[in-house]
Amino acid sequence: MNQFGRLLKLVFLCVPLAYLASQFALPLVSGIVMSFAAGGFSLANYGFVLHDPLFWRAWANNLILPALSLCLEFVLGLLFALLLSSARRVSIVTEISILLPFLIPEIVFLSIARYILLPRGYLNGALFSAGFGGAGWLNPGSGLALASVIVVDAWHVTPVVTLVLLGGLQTIPAELYEAAHLDGAGAVARLRHVTLPFLKPALFAALLLRGVDALRIFSTVLVLTGAEGTPVLSTYAYQLWSDALEPRVAMAASVMLALLITLLSLAVLVLRRRAGARGEGSWEYLAA
């Protein structure tokens, strides 16, 4: 069958890849070139960034925020996935509810989250009515604002983690649980010795999938606290580009972000190989 249709498949492969390259690879390369340009080849843009205290805050936030958000959404995602797969019957309301925060368009979700967290928002209103004082949930630069961003981010994307882990849970044969039960394993022991080992590939897949998105976090920060409220690398670069009109410096910052994401993804891939997690699926999860 290989002797015919080769040309068709070649065209079918190359045209979409060329299109992807024109939209992503070409801008990236031109951006990298831009980041080294300051009237000739120069490292000045990187020098500027590295001497900017705001950059270092953004850098720190860009590590803390994804790390905590991932922890939160993995704990919740695992709980939800176990909930969905362990119940004899999952009501359609629960099923839709689990997905809903992610199904609502991101910006719509963030808009409502902002109205809830504003100083005169619904959360403080409810606290006030209950006799508590309010809090500045979104105060620029505060730890509380960082926490708010983390919670909102986890709130929004936990459904994705749930879905991936659920896919992993469904690969576990039911007989294993029955065998473990007969062997006297309680619920916790079953989780530790049956569920988690089987879930390893799905966990790594979800980690890759969500980790990349968490590192690229942009809209959540921008809508909730503004670019400078809890600066991350994306908003830092955006602000340099749109407000400070320093496109080359902005590119230097975003190139560093791209580098960070690539290195951390590679690290996860290496870790996955070390852990011996089976399955080729993670590339597909990543692409999807």
């Binding site: 890849l17 801008p27 951006g31 831009m34 942009f218 670069a237 590119m251 690539t262 990543l286």
Partner: peptide, 16 residues
Amino acid sequence: ALSVTRLLPMVAAAMP
């Protein structure tokens, strides 16, 4: 190729 596109942060593509 599809996986690599996922790694690219929005700002790094959108600004150039």
